[in-house]
Design a binder for these strands. Structure first.
Lengths: 202, 202
DNA sequence: TCCTTAACACGGAACGGTCAGTCTCGCCTA
DNA sequence: TAGGCGAGACTGACCGTTCCGTGTTAAGGA
């Protein structure tokens, strides 16, 4: 723990002293993305990030509980907000996951996302940060959408939410990590189509 | 590189001196699996494996070009041969991937496979070992099978082999790494069913 | 309103402990 | 006699923590 009473990522302002520098935080995240792309997860080092960002290691540990959590944060900053899906079921499902595709297709987003996923799978705090984001930005809206589609008899009712999530996210994560092939435009739309065919009513 | 002229994992027998000890190799792989399950990928250390196996680090580097490659080898040893799929297309596809499910459901196979996947995604040599195994045991037979099914008009012809592979492997890998949920019996059969519905002819 | 003072963030540097990868030793085996 | 083996030394790098000196901010008294 860095500060005993307060979560490091949400500093309180009801106290004396200077505020935490958002400039330092941004420099650290920038440096972290470069280091992630260059060195992978096991070769990633806090010392290098600190040196590259001209920051102190203590500043890093003030903001994040672990380096894995920092890596996930650095990657999440690359992911844009979900667009409006319109009315078509396929487009609405695609809209939920296409921000991942967009991030994977920009600059070294592919490598940064890979390291963040490795961190989330390997580091406790990083996994919590990642699953919190997925839960809020993907799983929860997906649950609402699937309930609506099931109600309209567009899809069957006998689905397991987490199985669907795995079917939608698994392929792109596999591509980012194991196969390392580029993520084609329209990749996520294909997953949405596949899901609808799998779970089509009747 | 450990030995300049010879691939470490395939020692030549056309020379003087003792053979490499398969007993030591087995002890190292056993110890590696325990360490993988306990410490994850970033926390995994060669020193610990050597000490646990009562082996010398030099022996480890004689057998494997990198620790990642050793982790992948340790996990591959848990994966049984594919069963005979019979005549049903769904069963034949399931048969290709169900060895992964079987391995994930035994002892600490879940954790060992997770670390092997992280190694394959993070370490160059480990990735090559992993992709070589997938290519030989899954991708190649899958290609033959899909060609046959397409010929019989069971599935459409406009598929990309690697996209199918990603759709079949992605979900179980996601479950092993990110969500860490147990792999239910029948999980792989569900993926095969989903694939057939997605690519059904007509 | 001004000024002191306490609290704390910052960069930088150092610490003890761990690890990777290489090397050397003495022993043993084919 | 070439070479595998366990054991251990070694260098350089890294982790997580701690300390330092400097600077910045808010609270509270004059």
């Amino acid at each position: 723990m860095t500060t005993p009473t307060e979560t490091p990522s949400t500093p309180s302002r009801s106290r004396k002293g200077p505020t935490r520098s958002e400039v330092s935080k941004a420099a650290i995240l920038d440096a972290a993305r470069d280091e992630m792309a260059e060195n992978g997860w096991r070769g990633f080092s806090v010392d290098s990030v600190a040196k590259r960002a001209s920051a102190s290691k203590q500043t890093i540990y003030r903001w994040w509980p672990s380096i894995g959590a920092m890596c996930v944060d650095a990657a999440l900053a690359l992911i844009p907000d979900a667009p409006d899906g319109g009315r078509d079921p396929q487009e609405r499902i695609t809209a939920l996951i296409i921000p991942l595709e967009a991030a994977a297709r920009t600059g070294h987003g592919h490598a940064v996302l890979r390291v963040a996923l490795l961190a989330a799978a390997d580091d406790k705090e990083a996994g919590e940060v990642w699953r919190a984001w997925v839960g809020r930005d993907i799983r929860q809206p997906l649950r609402m959408l699937l309930a609506e589609l099931a109600g309209k008899r567009v899809i069957r009712r006998d689905f397991e939410l987490d199985d669907v999530l795995e079917q939608l996210l698994g392929p792109i994560f596999h591509r980012l990590t194991i196969s390392r092939a580029p993520v084609k435009e329209g990749f996520c739309a294909e997953q949405a189509t596949a899901f609808l065919r799998t779970y089509a009513a009747f």
